[in-house]
């Protein structure tokens, strides 16, 4: 784990229970400035609960979270929104705002509102830049309710980018997307973080993406942080077993040699495959 001095988010011993279920148990982590951090784990492991705590959307029963060295509990919603932008899993189909309206709303913490005016030059620039980065110019005046899942997700990310924050947290941004759309989102996130000005925290089930495009991976199981490792050391059978409690089929990538997870087929047996690296 990296030093405390370069961390932008520091969570120490956070626990959270709801309705008798322990959602998070003594979880500690730090996120460093400019880092790309992936959070992985089985369904219901506590990944979303963890990021909800980091976003101030859920209050832990115990433990502390600091943002830039200040307690999160003492940070106002506006200050938080100026530091962290959040991309939820999927936007509901019922949302009938146009792409431009939805993206403009993310300027709320900076300009105090959804509707930009002619004096909000900084906001206009931020919105235009986000639209360009996500390549959604053609969707400007289209309602979100008439967009495909991939288009909606790009608008979702554009809105977070227009918020102009140093930290971006995404909850399964590629879930339910076809391979092309998934690739577009992954490339987009790689591009916006390549100069390390944005700290990226992503929940994903795509372990191949996590191991190839991220610096560090945190593995959660039953509310506990089981593994906090560099991405290149994560794709090992024993590590994956510890996080997912199942044996996964690993095979080296033909070009990079990096271990990749392969889907099981009726002809293959997990016991016969292992990473050659």
């Amino acid at each position: 784990m990296s030093s405390h001095s370069s961390s932008i988010i520091q969570a120490s011993g956070i626990s959270l229970s709801r309705g008798g279920a322990q959602l998070l148990a003594n979880a500690s982590l730090s996120v460093n400035i400019g880092e790309r951090l992936a959070i992985v784990g089985s369904n219901g492991a506590g990944k979303t609960t963890l990021i909800r705590c980091l976003l101030g959307l859920a209050d832990p029963d115990s433990g502390s979270i600091e943002l830039n060295g200040h307690p999160l509990s003492e940070t106002s919603r506006t200050e938080l929104a100026q530091q962290i932008a959040y991309v939820p899993q999927q936007l509901a189909e019922r949302i009938s705002f146009t792409a431009t309206e939805f993206i403009n709303m993310s300027r709320y913490a900076h300009t105090g509102g959804a509707s930009m005016n002619q004096f909000d030059h900084q906001g206009t620039e931020a919105v235009e830049e986000a639209i360009e980065q996500t390549n959604i110019s053609h969707l400007r005046h289209q309602s979100l309710s008439t967009m495909s899942g991939g288009e909606r997700q790009r608008v979702n990310i554009a809105a977070a980018l227009a918020q102009k924050t140093p930290i971006l947290i995404l909850d399964e941004p590629t879930a339910h997307l076809d391979p092309k759309q998934r690739g577009l989102i992954q490339k987009l996130l790689a591009n916006i973080t390549k100069n390390r000005e944005i700290t990226l925290v992503v929940i994903t089930h795509d372990l191949n993406w996590a191991s190839s495009d991220f610096d560090r991976i945190i593995g959660i199981r039953d509310g506990h942080i089981e593994i906090d490792a560099q991405a290149d050391t994560f794709m090992k059978k024993e590590v994956l077993m510890k996080v997912f409690d199942t044996e996964l089929l690993l095979h080296p990538h033909p070009d990079s040699g990096r271990a990749m997870i392969l889907p099981y087929s009726s002809c293959s047996s997990p016991s016969t495959s292992s990473p050659k690296s």
């Binding site: 909800r52 976003l55 101030g56 959307l57 106002s76 919603r77 506006t78 938080l80 929104a81 100026q82 962290i84 932008a85 959040y86 939820p88 936007l91 509901a92 949302i95 705002f97 309206e101 939805f102 709303m105 993310s106 709320y108 913490a109 105090g112 509102g113 959804a114 509707s115 918020q163």
Partner: peptide, 21 residues
Amino acid sequence: HKELNLLSITDDIAASRGVDV
């Protein structure tokens, strides 16, 4: 009116954009 726009999406979106929900 700006808060209503955000609240009509989800509480989480509204809060993460800076609204005291």
